[in-house]
Design a protein around this nucleic acid. Sequence first.
DNA 1: CCCCAGGGCCATA
DNA 2: TATGGCCATGGG
Length: 306
Amino acid sequence: MNEVVRKINIDNRTIRLTKPDNYSFAECNKFLDRGYDDCLYTLEENRVLKPLKFHGKKTLISVSDDADNLVVEVLLGDLRRDELKKVGRFVSLWFDLERNLKPFYQLLNQDERLSYMVERYHGLRLMGIPDLFEAMCWCVIGQQINLSFAHSVKRQLVEKYGSYLKYEGQRHYLFPKPEILAGLSVEALRELQFSRRKAEYTIGIARQFAEGMLSKSALVEMENTEQMLSTLLDVRGVGPWTANYVLMKSLQRPDCITYGDTGLQSSLSALLGLDRKPTSEEVESFFDPFSGWESYLNIYLWRSLH
DNA sequence: CCCCAGGGCCATA
DNA sequence: TATGGCCATGGG
């Protein structure tokens, strides 16, 4: 699926990615603009700014759209043509442009409890976190705490240990490198309101990345989601929720369910008319008709919460 | 002051 | 194998 790179049109510092069918820039941006203080991108009127790094070279991009394209502009950094292609590839992953949603919408239409989603959330895609290390740290931070506090902890971490680019007087932060976090003490992270456990998990994960024990490229090589899950579950601090979340958001795996997720559970309780959390069997059977589209059902159920 | 947030580890039986 | 306590803190 991700082998195919979208048709892109590179013109100096501008990259145009043709919009796929069933795509809505506004719906995707609504996800980015849920009212949380995210430090890794900046929303403006009609565009999103994000800093990126490609083997040591930093750049700042803006993403907006016109009638037919996502329009990516390079605001900072001199990039060669092949590097511009990588920028296009990043945005394509970030907005999940390569996926054909038609089969998913056909499945939604077959369930009268869900068919309303096809129109109401039309064109919403799985907004990714392409950096696996960042995705895993974000999961650890977010475990069992409310999202606004999680964002506050992430910001403290990023502002203290990340790097940044300056553009029009504003700082645009990049997530800290594994090598930096790998060398920290538990106490250093506790100062940033990490719990002791989460500090240990984060440092442990950073060490595995720094030493090459864990990498996105190694996971991508694997045959199926099952193998990737079992690799991730061996990491301390990674349980079923984190492993599935990461595979969905960072590797674009289509068949993941964030078991244990409170948002997922409450949306299913409402749909099934329960006054309690659904059991894991009830979750399984609900997802059963959506084989190969579990990740998308998962994010559309999240979307239905607000 | 209570409960619970986009969980997971660890001690106990 | 299963169950319950614990963690950090802010918001409802």
